[in-house]
Design a binder for these strands. Structure first.
Lengths: 111, 111
DNA sequence: TTGATATATTCCAATATACGAATATAAGGG
DNA sequence: CCCTTATATTCGTATATTGGAATATATCAA
């Protein structure tokens, strides 16, 4: 959130829109693949699974966040990570889930 | 995302669920209020707007992420930020939106 | 216990989302 | 131009989400 003053509803909605883009397992799976490097749509369809149309649609959603880049090269389109801070966000969530899992398993040693 | 190996679908779905919790303007407005400190439900209803029932529901969604804490004190319930990294994530998104806005406005000086 | 206050829950309607199937568009090779 | 390959778009359906209204539950005070 902005440092000091409060965002208005429209600003909040824009932020929400970005989180929304990362709120789907298929899109996160795509992100995970893109982590290894740029990737064409067809390759992503193979690796992530699902219909070609769907993967293409989810890629657009991701590209609209500004964190993922779309680049046309001749016949095909390559997507790639444009801003790696997207993984910082994922890491925060992952580490939170991890620590929760540990608590559930009783791996907490407090006095 | 986890550091090396790929997450399975179930893991991705859990991560997605957390992002999902932050993908709504009302819930982000609540977060924004909680940034100033713990807050009771009634106060949040006043400040954020909307029905009491809705605010209460959105608070549950937030609490389920593990980033927000729920604490009952006598008659009322206070919610507060349990893990401030939630704001790191928001800041990443906000700064991205900010830089996009600048680009749109032409505030980029490249040769 | 009764009443008042604070929060949670249920129910419902409107809207949004995810996905596959089918189709459209674009680019390259012959 | 025709055909093939690669990607995008449209359409329909099943499911999920949002939010208000009404109701339920809990706590305190008298």
């Amino acid at each position: 959130m902005a440092d000091e003053q409060k965002m208005d509803r429209e600003g909040l909605e824009r932020v929400a829109r970005v989180f929304q883009a990362f709120s789907d397992a298929t899109r996160l799976a795509i992100l995970q693949e893109l982590k290894s490097g740029p990737c064409g749509v067809g390759t992503l369809v193979e690796r992530v699974g699902g219909s070609q149309g769907n993967i293409s649609k989810q890629l657009q959603v991701l590209a609209e966040t500004g964190f993922i880049r779309r680049e046309k090269k001749g016949n095909q389109v390559f997507y790639s990570i444009d801003d790696p801070r997207v993984f910082e966000m994922c890491n925060v969530v992952c580490s939170k889930l991890k620590s929760e899992a540990q608590e559930k398993a009783g791996f907490v040693f407090e006095i």
